[in-house]
Design a binder for these strands. Structure first.
Lengths: 223, 223
DNA sequence: CCGTCGCATCCTGGATACAGGATTCAGGAT
DNA sequence: ATCCTGAATCCTGTATCCAGGATGCGACGG
């Protein structure tokens, strides 16, 4: 194959696999076969395997020795663990974002909230999930903290892939959008502490719903 | 090749490299030669390279295409980024640890604080750093959250490897130990919210010192 | 004397081929 | 129905091979 300097296949492969996982291409628990994936992506097993290790470290894949890698399946404990971390992650991101000097970008968050609002009426679950993720990722990127940015896969995983575990309902989404709006306004206004408090409250609410809800195991996938 | 079933070399290699990095074996910026490392560790380049990718993802290594991997070097921005994340990470860990049902383990934290205290008089910088790390890691493990546990490399990196950037002084250490004591007591008492507040305050204090301090670039290594 | 140009060498990234063990599952024996 | 067995399939790790960018150094020119 031709040598594309300055680009490592492992990075491209990892990104492609991430997107596939976010999109729900692979059912949780289904083993990913190296040979097949390598051929699909037109790379050898060498960079593919490195990419699998990376995604494993990101928490997107789980692999048991000798049995290969598969997309992690969501259980209630894992969801709670993930959201507990997200509470403080999103809180920190909101606080730092509010202190960003990119005033324009801070105000652009309002548009993303508008997108979410648009997905409510008429209710469009898949569209909502996507604009929801966009918002959270945008806040993290605004925070301009490389370690925080490293948590983005966790955010995408919980918001896009794990979502089907707790079905996305219109009422919950409506409430979430209004909470996002408050966060976006606090960030735009530069109210760092308030933004953090609101962002954490938003996730806390979500956690509470997860703990209380019966959480009927659904196997459908968001989108 | 003796097959140690159920153990992947990549995991062992990654762990060995992590410990070497924590111990300051490799100077920041020094390229890690794959061939040499592979021979040292008695493995082929394949699992070694996978381990390098994993450590890169953990933020311990940085590698530019074609130029190999090297231990990340600490600059002021990176330190602040890391500690900003640690503020909320450690805070969450303390809160969850306080809610742990393992009362014994919660109370065992006091002993670790005692270890730190022992390293103050007579002043033993290396011993202090190690017992300090032990404490933070123990709190995270008590929290029993797999996503939080994934942040341990970040904690070890900032506390063990980046430390030399801001030299460890006895006065700072003495203050830190007293703060740790408060956190440990709150956790032992099961005061979750208070434990989180104290843990965050502890890191906030550290951040403040980092921002203010002139931070003369030292190249010596802790231990 | 100093810069820079070119070449040999080193090393990484990638592709293959292959061996040894583990997993899985179908099919037969009990 | 349950257990055992064996082959196909896969994963893991090793050993090579190769292309081409990175690096270092010496020669050459200003």
């Amino acid at each position: 194959m031709q040598w594309r300097s300055r680009v490592r296949l492992v990075d491209e492969v990892a990104q492609e696999l991430r997107e596939r996982i976010y999109a729900g291409t692979y059912e949780a628990g289904m083993p990913l076969r190296q040979e097949q994936l390598a051929e699909e992506l037109q790379v050898s097993r060498t960079p593919l395997r490195e990419a699998l290790r990376v995604l494993e470290r990101e928490g997107l894949l789980k692999s048991e020795p000798g049995r290969g890698a598969r997309v992690v399946s969501a259980d209630i404990k894992k969801l709670l663990d993930a959201y507990q971390l997200r509470e403080v992650i999103d809180g920190l991101a909101a606080r730092l974002a509010a202190r960003s000097e990119d005033v324009e970008a801070r105000q652009a968050l309002a548009k993303m909230v508008a997108d979410q609002h648009a997905a409510l009426e008429p209710w469009h679950a898949a569209g909502y999930v996507l604009s929801n993720v966009e918002f959270h990722v945008a806040v993290i990127e605004l925070a301009d903290n490389e370690y925080l940015a490293g948590q983005i896969p966790l955010v995408r995983m919980t918001s896009q892939v794990f979502m089907p575990v707790g079905p996305v309902e219109k009422e919950r989404a409506t409430l979430a959008v209004s909470e996002h709006q408050l966060v976006a306004e606090a960030i735009a206004a530069g109210e760092a502490e308030e933004a953090e408090r609101l962002a954490r409250a938003h996730i806390t609410t979500t956690i509470k719903r997860l703990s209380e809800g019966a959480m009927p195991p659904k196997k459908g996938h968001a989108q």
